[in-house]
Write a protein that binds this DNA or RNA. Structure first.
Lengths: 110, 110
DNA sequence: CGACATATGTCGATGATCAACCTATGCTCG
DNA sequence: CGAGCATAGGTTGATCATCGACATATGTCG
């Protein structure tokens, strides 16, 4: 399992869930913020990803509520989800370091 | 252009080309090394990616040679390719930092 | 002679994301 | 009071990078 690297929307989604549970619409705005406006999660991407991550056991629904007549469903990272995010960031950091090391060899200041 | 994030095989491919030009088969082994054996570039992925990156202007063929009766085609990063890699690593580093910051808020030592 | 490393490539399937659409409520502005 | 926007949930078909399998050829080792 989990042999293939996650894509940027998924990584940002897990990052947006890393500190506390959030509901779908809040995740879209949070990802927008985290990525400095670069990534706007589409609902198609979001709900497909949440369904997939739940099936993988990385994310789970922790509650629902109605605020001002609007329904909210909250999602949270599981222990496995936290582990996955920790592992992914470690691997990415290593790759980024290696890329920058090679760029410096070439004379590029990264 | 270049709105969508590159995937891990592409990132590793650019990283493998970051210090010096390499030929296809050498890129497969180099990516394997960089990723500590985690990512084995399939030739389907490699040559499709090289074709795509050439069309994007990030990679170009810099020479060909025959060594021990075997044909080698060398690929290198262009200026745009270097810029793309620098930008990508900067964005990834920022996301990784943000993910780790949130994980620490949760009490996870990343 | 058979197997393996080196070297380049093609092709159909898979799957994550995108773009576009849908429903519904509450608030604000004119 | 009606239009438009932000909030909140979702589905569906298309796109495209990657995967897995296959194809071809040479040099080397046992």
């Amino acid at each position: 399992m989990a042999s293939k690297m996650m894509q940027e929307p998924t990584l940002l989604l897990l990052t947006a869930l890393a500190d506390e549970p959030r509901h779908g619409y809040a995740l879209i705005k949070e990802v927008d913020t985290i990525s400095s406006g670069r990534v706007r999660l589409r609902t198609g991407t979001l709900y497909a990803a949440l369904a997939r991550l739940q099936q993988q056991g990385w994310v789970q629904v922790t509650g629902e509520e109605v605020v001002d007549g609007r329904h909210r469903r909250y999602y949270a990272l599981t222990k496995d989800g936290v582990d996955a995010l920790v592992g992914e960031t470690a691997r990415l950091r290593a790759t980024v370091q290696e890329a920058n090391r090679r760029l410096r060899l070439r004379g590029v200041t990264a």
